[in-house]
Design a protein around this nucleic acid. Structure first.
Length: 284
DNA sequence: CACCATGTTCCTTG
DNA sequence: CCAAGGAACATGGT
């Protein structure tokens, strides 16, 4: 689920629903998700604060909260890891099996459901300083991408996954962007031509923007009632709804299928311990 | 049982 | 300094 577009879609949704609501109680089922912040520090810092806004940086959710009396503002970081989902539940609904953190609000509960427990909810904002530029910002020109790539001889696919070089690109969209740019994932990052960097920048932005426009690659499903009354909540895939997740991806998880451009079979290789999908004929 | 999985960090080896 | 590899985190799907 969660790369830049999915986190962006979720942040936009939460920013419509959370501002103004108060954290009544924090329930940390897995203390690890807060590290290095302690559970008690989290409780002290968050209980009684109000959401001001929800934004995104890389794959992180940024929750800005304010304490009413003092006006003190704090930042809470959320990360969905590999499989995390964040959504609102009605006040009395049962906790999901793998809820790692729940926040009881004035109406309902904000739940991080995360079967693999790789997700984070923490007051430690240090990870933000290590992030590279945002690929969708206007300032992210060819020069910025060239700068991110030019300092590394690693394969360009591996470099794209480095969050300190470029923020928000994960394993799916790295493959997809390289395919659109017709650049081989195995090319050393610092050896792309200017024309290739131009294509890759355009491809990255197109792929990410398309996924956001779609509503994320994994279709978001909304349960509950009226959107206007804030009853709506993100719940992932609804039962019986076909998973159109993969239909939009051109190469990811399509080993052996015909390339949509030249019909040669898509290849899967392993890079830095992770799968890369590409067309050896189109991408050089 | 085996192998794979949308992420990040830390550690070792060269 | 860099690159590359592995392990750890923990669970579920095929």
């Amino acid at each position: 689920m969660p790369e830049l577009p999915e986190v962006e879609v979720l942040a936009r949704y939460l920013d419509r629903v959370l501002p103004g609501r108060t954290v009544r109680r924090l329930m940390v089922h897995r203390p690890r998700v807060c590290r290095p912040t302690s559970v008690s520090a989290m409780e002290t810092a968050l209980t009684g604060t109000r959401f001001l806004k929800v934004t995104r940086r890389g794959k992180y959710l940024l929750f800005t909260l304010q304490r009413r009396k003092s006006g003190e503002v704090r930042l809470l970081l959320g990360h969905l890891g590999m499989a995390g989902r964040l959504y609102l539940l009605p006040p009395k609904a049962a906790s999901p099996k793998h809820a790692s953190v729940e926040m009881e609000l004035d109406r309902g509960r904000l739940v991080l459901e995360d079967p693999r427990y790789f997700g984070r909810v923490t007051l430690d904002v240090a990870p933000l300083r290590r992030l590279g530029p945002e690929p969708l910002e206007a300032e992210f020109g060819v020069a910025r991408l060239a700068e991110a790539l030019g300092r590394s001889r690693k394969p360009v696919k591996v470099r794209l996954l480095d969050q300190s070089a470029l923020a928000g690109v994960g394993n799916i969209y790295a493959s997809e962007a390289l395919f659109r740019a017709r650049v081989s994932p195995q090319r050393p990052a610092d050896q792309l031509s200017v024309a290739e960097v131009v294509r890759l920048r355009q491809a990255l932005r197109a792929v990410l923007r398309a996924a956001i426009a779609w509503g994320s690659t994994v279709p978001l499903h909304w349960r509950g009632r009226s959107r206007r009354r804030g009853q709506l909540f993100y719940y992932g895939l609804a039962p019986g709804v076909p998973d159109v997740y993969e239909e939009r991806l051109r190469v990811y998880d399509r080993e052996g299928e015909p390339c949509p451009r030249c019909a040669q079979p898509i290849c899967r290789i392993e890079q830095a311990g992770r799968s890369t999908y590409y067309c050896p004929a189109c991408q050089r």
